[in-house]
């Protein structure tokens, strides 16, 4: 690691407003809300949102510059959720961050709700784009970054969450080529590398490895991290912001269904929701885990 990356991490840690323990507890609260939302909705995806809760907590409570009371603030960092099916984790995190009341979370997927089954920009302030059909987020980030460059205002960061299964989409690699060619260095992509997609393990459905080499060969700076380690996510984002010549891709290894033992690593939970008994058990497990996630990784 370069000295500049160490410096970036040190500065980032000095600027932290929440302790890692506080953030880990927040991620657990978000996971509990995800379970409640999905049970109440009676449909939706479980594994991805639970796996991404630590990344989303890190982004909204530490990494990103944003203002829940002014979602259109023109200095804000941008988060594009390209894997739109994981939106329950974003809704829950946004509610905890103060974008809207947590009570509204229980309207997920219901008629008239602002919390659509897949995210719609026009429905909910703070939702930067409409997504669900996979493969489109990185391209939009390229367009945003190019517009900022034209305006000579590329001081804002654009974070793009993608699923690993989503990388099957050709549109992703079209964007990867463009960002590499144009050296769009204010784009920080984050791949939720949980190794599952609907039809099974990613390496069986459509092999992605060697993922690091793929992105590097397209002109990206790649950082691999444990995506369930909030401190690692925060540090990696700080390192990413210190990279000046290339777009940055974080490959974040996560556990699908993280925090609920009968969901973890099981691809069957990709696209389904917990029933009442399962939700009860999941909430119980997440209560006992509260504040202990850090301990697991040590």
């Amino acid at each position: 690691m370069d000295i500049q990356h160490w410096a970036a991490i040190i500065v980032s840690r000095m600027q932290q407003t929440h302790s890692i323990e506080w953030l880990e507890n927040k991620a657990t609260e978000i996971r509990r809300d995800i379970i409640r939302m999905l049970e109440h909705a009676g449909s939706g995806h479980s594994a991805g949102p639970l796996g991404m809760a630590d990344i989303m907590t890190a982004l909204y409570f530490d990494v990103m510059k944003h203002d829940p009371k002014n979602p259109d603030w023109d200095e804000r960092d941008i988060l594009l959720l390209s894997n739109g099916h994981t939106v329950p984790v974003r809704y829950a995190t946004m509610a905890h961050a103060g974008y809207f009341d947590r009570k509204e979370l229980m309207t997920l997927r219901q008629f008239g709700s602002r919390l659509q089954g897949h995210p719609e920009r026009l429905k909910l302030p703070g939702m930067e784009t409409t997504s669900g059909p996979l493969g489109c987020g990185l391209s939009q980030a390229c367009g945003m970054s190019l517009a900022m460059r034209m305006d000579k205002s590329s001081h804002r960061w654009i974070y793009v969450m993608m699923g690993d299964g989503e990388l099957n989409e050709g549109n992703i690699w079209e964007a990867a080529m463009l960002a590499g060619k144009e050296k769009l260095n204010n784009i920080i992509g984050i791949i939720d590398r949980n190794n599952i997609q609907i039809d099974g393990p990613t390496e069986n459905v459509m092999p992605l490895e060697n993922l690091r080499e793929k992105w590097e060969s397209f002109g990206w700076h790649v950082i691999e991290i444990n995506g369930n380690d909030i401190e690692a996510v925060i540090d990696a984002c700080a390192m990413a912001r210190a990279v000046t010549e290339k777009p940055i891709m974080l490959i974040a290894y996560t556990i699908p269904g993280k925090g609920v033992d009968f969901m973890e690593y099981d691809f069957h939970w990709h696209g389904t929701f917990p029933n009442h008994e399962q939700a009860k058990e999941a909430l119980h497990q997440l209560r006992t885990l509260n504040g202990k996630i850090r301990g697991e990784h040590e």
């Binding site: 939009q140 390229c142 367009g143 945003m144 034209m150 305006d151 549109n171 080529m177 463009l178």
Partner: peptide, 28 residues
Amino acid sequence: PGRFVEIGIAEQNLVTVGAGLAAMGKIP
């Protein structure tokens, strides 16, 4: 030239980059 982007033979990217440009107030 500073307001033009060559996308290459990638029409899916062409329009989605367009959506990103428009998100920043451009008329692409």
